[in-house]
Design a protein around this nucleic acid. Structure first.
Lengths: 351, 351
DNA sequence: CTGAAAGCGCTTACAG
DNA sequence: CTGAAAGCGCTTACAG
C-alpha cells in the first residue's frame, strides 16, 4: 500500500533540498536550473510517483488556454454533432481554464481555411483544431502555425504531411468494408449492387469505396458490382442516374452510397415502389436519413461518431497543452456505429 | 458581449455588501445567514451568471469525495469494461478530489451485495454505485444508505422502487427489438427463428425477449418463432437443446440469444456445418464471441456499452456530490451498438 | 539568474 | 453566531 496523501512539489522540494521554484523549473523544463539538479529532481518526482494537480495548475495559471476551431458554418447535422462534442468538452474543461474560439467558413474550402488560419496565427492562440479541406494544400500554413508555437490537431480529415500533432477521424477504409459486410449479409451473399460515389477525387470517398470493393471481392463473391456512379452531392443527378439503371430493368438488389447523400436514390426507389426490395446502405446520421430509416427505405446507416470526433479533439488538445501528453497513436480512430430502425434514436448526437 | 472575466464569490460579496463567507453560506445552503440576505445573494449570483469554479472548489475541499463501488469479482469481459469505464472516470476526476473504493462480490448475489452495503454504510462514504442483483430486495438497504446521507446510483440493473438518485443502463426492450430487426433483415423477412433465454426470471432477459417478440410480430410477419429455450447460462444445456431441434430437422433459419451466451449454439452450428446458413445474433462483446464473429458463426452482437455505463455512473455521481446536479432524467440509457466482423475491433472496450 | 512571496477561487478551521 | 484568515497545490510576477 502506498501512502494516501498526494505528493506535491513541496514534498519533492523537501526531498531534494531545493526551493519549490526549482522543482517547478525542473518539471516544466523552464531552464534556470543546473542539469544535475534537474535530473535529481525528476528522479525524485518519478520515485514519489508525482503527478501534477490539474486543479491547482489551472487555478494558478494566469492566462487561459485558448483553442481556435475552424469549422464550416453550414448547419448540417454532421458538423452540428462535431460542434456539440467540442462544446461539451469546453464545458467540462472551462474550470481548468480552457476556452474555445470558433472560426467559421462559409464552405468547406481551402482558401477560406487558409485565411482563417492566417488570422488565427496573427491573433495568437495556444492550439488550433481544423478539418483540413485538403490533405496537402494546408500543410504550409499548418506548419507555419506550429512554427509560431501553436499546437495544431486535425479532425475528421487529415493533413498527414504537416506538423499537426495528432488526428482524429473515422477509419474510412474499414467503414467501407463494413458497408460491404452489411450489404453482403442483407443479401445473403447473392445479388447485384450499385455503388454511388459523391466525389471520386475526395480521399474519404476513395477509401470507403476501396474498402467496399475489397471486402466484396474477397468475402462476397456471389455479389457483382455496378458503378461507381458519381453525383457530386447533387440529388437530382443521383436520382436520374438511379432512374436510368432502373429503367434498363437491371436486377439491382442493393445500393451503396459512399457518403451521407442517399436522397436521390431514395426518391427513385420510392417512385418505383422498390423500397425494401432494393437494400440501401449509406453513411452518417441526419434528420432526413433517419426518416428514411424509419420508413424502411434506407436499411442501415454507418456513422463515424462526429460527436466524439469533436469531443476528443478538444479534450486531447487541452491535455497536450496543459500537460504535454499526446495520444498514444498519432491517428486516433472513432468507431463505426451502425444505425438501424431500432437504435437510431438512442443518444441522437452519437454520444 | 458579456464580460470576459469569470465571476467569483468575491464579486458577489462586493455587490451584495457582505463577506465572502456569507456568500458561501448562501450558495451552499449552509445556514448561518438570514433568509433575506440569502435570497438577495442568490439573486445576484443568478444575475451575474455565477458558476462555481470546480478547480478551486476541489482544491480547497479538505476531505476527498469517496465513492464505493460494488461489482462482481469474476473477470468477464463485460464487467471488466464497466470497471474500465469507472477507472477512467476516476482518473479524470482524481485532481478534483475524488476516489473510488471497490467492493467485490464473488458472485452476482443479493446476500453478498447486502453485506457489502452494510459494511460501506458503517465505513461511511459520500456515494455508492451498485448494479443491484435484484430489482426489489435491495431497496431497504439502499434506502438505509440514503438515510445515512449517502447518494446511491444504480448501473446496468436497477432498483426503481428505492431512493437511488439515478440509474444508467441499456434500453433492454429496445435492444430486443433491435435483435428482431437484425434477424428480420438478415432473413429478408422470411424464416423460422429459435429463441434462447438465459434466465426467464431475470428482468433483463424478459425485456429483451419481449422486445424481440413484439417487433417480430408487428414487423416481420413472415417469420415464425420457436421457443424460448432456457439454458441458465449452461453451455452444455444450450448445446443439447440446439442439437435436439436440429435433429428434428426443423428448417431453422436463425437463432436469437437473449444474453452473452451463444457458445453452446455456436458449437452445435459448427458440428452440423450450418454456420452462415443459420444466422446467429446475441448480446455483448467478449473475446470468445468476437472470435465467433470473425469466423462468421455469429452474425451480429448487440452491445450495451458497458464502458460508458461505468464511466457515466461515476461521472454523474461525482457531479451530484460536488455540485448537487442530477442528470436530467432519472434513468439514462446507453445506446445499443451493433458489432459486426468489420467494426468489432475499433475501440474494443466500447469507448 | 534565483528564491520567496503573492495569488488563483474556493472551503473550512479558527478567532472574536 | 459571524467575519477574517489560512490553506489547497500550483504558476508567475517580483525582489534581491
Amino acid at each position: 500500500m502506498q501512502t494516501n496523501k498526494r505528493v506535491t512539489i513541496k514534498d519533492i522540494a523537501r526531498e531534494a533540498n531545493v526551493s519549490i521554484g526549482a522543482v517547478y523549473s525542473a518539471l516544466r523544463h523552464k531552464g534556470r536550473i543546473s542539469e544535475e539538479t534537474r535530473r535529481n529532481i525528476l528522479e525524485i518526482a518519478k520515485r514519489l510517483n508525482y503527478t501534477k494537480n490539474q486543479a491547482a495548475s489551472s487555478l494558478s495559471r494566469k492566462k487561459e488556454l485558448r483553442i481556435a476551431i475552424v469549422l464550416p458554418r453550414k448547419l448540417e447535422d454532421f458538423w452540428n454533432d462535431v460542434e456539440y462534442g467540442m462544446d461539451k468538452a469546453e464545458y467540462e474543461l472551462k474550470d481548468f481554464g480552457m476556452k474555445i474560439i470558433k472560426y467559421r467558413t462559409e464552405n468547406f474550402s481551402i482558401d477560406e481555411q487558409i485565411m482563417h488560419l492566417m488570422k488565427i496565427i496573427d491573433t495568437g492562440v495556444d492550439g488550433i483544431a481544423i478539418a483540413p479541406a485538403h490533405q496537402m494544400y494546408l500543410n504550409e500554413i499548418i506548419d507555419k502555425a506550429v512554427g509560431n508555437g501553436i499546437a495544431v490537431a486535425t479532425f475528421n480529415t487529415d493533413a498527414p504531411g504537416s506538423k499537426r500533432i495528432f488526428n482524429i477521424q473515422n477509419n474510412l477504409l474499414s467503414s467501407g468494408k463494413l458497408g460491404a459486410e452489411l450489404i453482403g449479409k442483407l443479401l445473403g451473399g447473392v445479388g447485384k449492387v450499385m455503388m454511388f460515389s459523391a466525389y471520386p477525387d475526395l480521399l474519404a470517398c476513395q477509401l470507403r469505396l476501396r474498402g467496399f470493393e475489397t471486402e466484396m471481392s474477397s468475402k462476397y463473391k456471389g455479389i457483382s458490382l455496378l458503378g461507381p456512379f458519381v453525383h457530386f452531392d447533387n440529388e437530382n443527378l443521383q436520382y436520374s442516374k438511379m432512374i436510368d439503371v432502373l429503367n434498363q430493368s437491371e436486377d439491382i438488389s442493393a445500393v451503396f452510397a459512399d457518403n451521407a447523400n442517399v436522397f436521390g436514390i431514395a426518391k427513385a426507389l420510392k417512385e418505383y415502389n422498390l423500397c425494401g426490395k432494393i437494400k440501401l446502405v449509406g453513411y452518417d446520421y441526419s434528420v432526413r436519413a433517419e426518416k428514411l430509416l424509419e420508413e424502411e427505405v434506407v436499411h442501415a446507416l454507418i456513422c463515424q461518431n462526429p460527436f466524439r470526433q469533436g469531443y476528443l479533439t478538444v479534450k486531447m488538445l487541452f491535455q497536450y497543452l496543459s500537460s504535454g501528453i499526446l495520444p498514444q497513436d498519432t491517428v486516433y480512430f472513432t468507431n463505426s456505429r451502425v444505425l438501424f430502425r431500432n437504435n437510431h434514436s438512442e443518444n441522437l448526437i452519437g454520444e
